[in-house]
């Protein structure tokens, strides 16, 4: 695989930072160089949240992702902010239950997933982020799903593991 430079963006409380962290853990377990950088300060107090995650075989220079290869957005303002930055032919994953517009750019690969509805069917809207993360690894092949699940088992809260697992699997299986 080639490296991935990913931006996750949404509202605080949607699990934006933790989906990035789980992916970074998985990347490390897969033997890749990884970095995770959150937005911080007043930004993290309830407003928007985003984080940059890099997984690559090369050494990581700047952990800031300015031109993501993949963008995951969970609200409209994040799409407005980051859509222009996505690389040409970059992957855009959006929660179609929450983002009420289509992407403007024609040179990118957009994928809408009704993550809220899927998560609600699974019993908890809070795992919508994991549905999107499942879709991301399926489409980018950046790490094997088993590695991601293992990382979640090791670093996530035990009582949420089964729910997280099922959300990831549903994200992977979502037919595009």
């Amino acid at each position: 695989m080639t490296g991935q430079e990913i931006v996750f963006a949404g509202f605080g409380g949607q699990g934006i930072l933790s989906m990035g962290k789980f992916l970074a853990f998985a990347g490390m377990e897969a033997g890749l160089n990884v970095s995770w950088l959150p937005s911080y300060g007043p930004e993290m107090r309830g407003g928007t949240a985003n984080c940059s995650v890099i997984l690559t075989e090369n050494t990581i220079g700047s952990p800031v992702v300015t031109t993501p290869t993949t963008l995951v957005v969970m609200n409209r303002p994040s799409l407005d902010k980051f859509e222009p930055a996505l690389v040409e032919n970059g992957l855009l994953i959006l929660d179609s239950d929450l983002v009420n517009r289509s992407p403007v750019r024609q040179d990118i690969e957009p994928v809408g997933i009704p993550a809220q509805s899927i998560a609600e069917r699974l019993g908890n809207k809070k795992v919508a982020n994991m549905v999107l993360l499942g879709a991301l690894i399926k489409m980018t092949q950046v790490v094997p799903v088993e590695t991601l699940l293992h990382a979640i088992q090791r670093h996530g809260k035990q009582q949420f593991y089964e729910l997280n697992e099922s959300a990831i699997v549903h994200g992977c299986d979502f037919s595009f």
Binding site: K21, M28, V34, W36, L37, Y40, I60
Partner: peptide, 10 residues
């Protein structure tokens, strides 16, 4: 700096 302080890496 803020970046080294806030980022995670192995």
């Amino acid at each position: 700096d803020g970046m080294l302080g806030q980022m995670m890496e192995p």
